[in-house]
């Protein structure tokens, strides 16, 4: 296990802090929401870092799809710049962890999209910016999850197998499929040698497990098969996964995740949607990163926080542009923004 050295991350920290300073702030989102047209927003963005990509798509006619792609390629460029500033020793691992994370998210989005019959265009719209856009586009065109699994098996990302497909067909619940992706993700983290990255992936593993267990209890599925051994909860997992939701929550109370889990369940009970449950857990990971970044600014956490913030910014700008295109009023736009 190697520790991250402060001096090695000093440069990356400088780069990321500067970039953070250039992120769009609340007041500017306000103004952008009030602009009258897409052209105004683009003219504004030309004065920012997005200039490089926006320049290529403007002209006498502007196609929204081109602008969306420009935003995505901007994110990729910034991401690559950040990764190249990370010290060589950790670069490959860091890159792998982030990219695998994006990939898993996207696969889940595609799965859910196919399950709800959204159609490939809509699915592609909701995808996270990532480097596998071609692959995801192809997968999104599957008519059903069977075709999806087949296509996936033909690639190097055969995380989901026929077994999980069968279970899905039996229960109609996406859990087996998504869990297979999660299992693969956690396994890919087993060989990490950098302590700080490992700490982060441990927290993530815990979150995935808690989420899975709660989900199983809600849908009344036995959780045993879906728990992934690892993270910081390791041995406690056997105990936690017993009983019903109440038992799970009280077992979690003995760990540091008690508060978060209860809050998440409260949110879930209000909306009845698993997405809010996920959202709550995700925000807790961000909280962990924020605290860690304050204790140890010269490390991985500040960088991960920024990448997240940049993703959100790209998403927001995308929302604003698309809304302007369809003439949606400012108040509604502000509601959708993250």
């Amino acid at each position: 296990m190697k520790k991250t050295k402060d001096s090695a991350y000093a440069y990356a920290y400088g780069v990321v802090s500067s970039m953070t300073g250039k992120l769009v702030d609340e007041k500017t989102y306000d103004e952008l929401a009030r602009f009258r047209s897409v052209e105004e927003v683009l003219a504004f963005m030309e004065g920012t870092d997005y200039e490089h990509e926006i320049k290529k798509v403007v002209g006498k006619t502007i196609r929204i799809k081109d602008v969306e792609n420009a935003l995505k390629s901007h994110f990729i460029r910034v991401y690559e710049e950040i990764v190249s500033s990370i010290p060589d020793t950790d670069r490959a691992e860091f890159n792998k962890v982030i990219l695998e994370g994006f990939r898993s998210e996207n696969l889940k989005v595609v799965i859910r999209g196919i399950h709800s019959g959204l159609g490939s265009e809509k699915i592609i719209e909701t995808l996270e910016t990532s480097m596998d856009s071609k692959l995801m586009a192809e997968l999104a065109e599957s008519k059903d999850l069977e075709e999806f699994t087949e296509k996936l098996e033909g690639t190097e990302y055969h995380y989901v197998t026929k077994e999980e497909l069968e279970k899905y067909k039996e229960t109609g619940d996406l859990l087996p499929l998504e869990n297979a992706i999660d299992k693969h993700l956690v396994n890919s983290w087993s060989k990490i040698s950098c302590i700080e990255i490992k700490e982060f992936t441990d927290i993530r593993t815990d979150m995935i497990n808690i989420m899975t267990i709660l989900r199983c209890k809600i849908s009344d599925i036995p959780a045993k098969d879906y728990v992934i051994y690892g993270g910081t909860l390791k041995e406690h997992l056997k105990e936690i996964e017993k009983g019903d939701v109440k038992d799970v929550l009280s077992s979690l109370d003995k760990t540091s995740y008690g508060g978060v889990a209860r809050e998440a369940m409260n949110e879930y009970e209000k909306t009845g949607s698993l997405v809010t449950l996920e959202g709550k857990m995700e925000s807790d990971v961000m909280k962990y990163l924020k605290e860690n970044a304050m204790l140890k600014p010269l490390g991985i956490s500040s960088i991960m926080l920024f990448i997240n913030a940049k993703r959100r910014e790209v998403k927001n700008l995308n929302t604003i542009i698309v809304c302007k295109h369809y003439d949606i009023p400012a108040e509604e736009i502000k509601e959708i923004l993250m």
């Binding site: 402060d6 001096s7 000093a10 440069y11 990356a12 920290y13 400088g14 780069v15 990321v16 802090s17 500067s18 970039m19 300073g21 250039k22 500033s85 010269l298």
Partner: peptide, 25 residues
């Protein structure tokens, strides 16, 4: 020297991204 190195790396990163940071860095 070591302290200046660490701070200098960050200063370089910050200034490279945005020149206005130069003087305070």
């Amino acid at each position: 020297a070591k302290g200046l190195e660490i701070a200098g790396n960050t200063a370089a990163g910050a200034t490279g991204e945005k020149e206005e940071n130069f003087s305070s860095a």
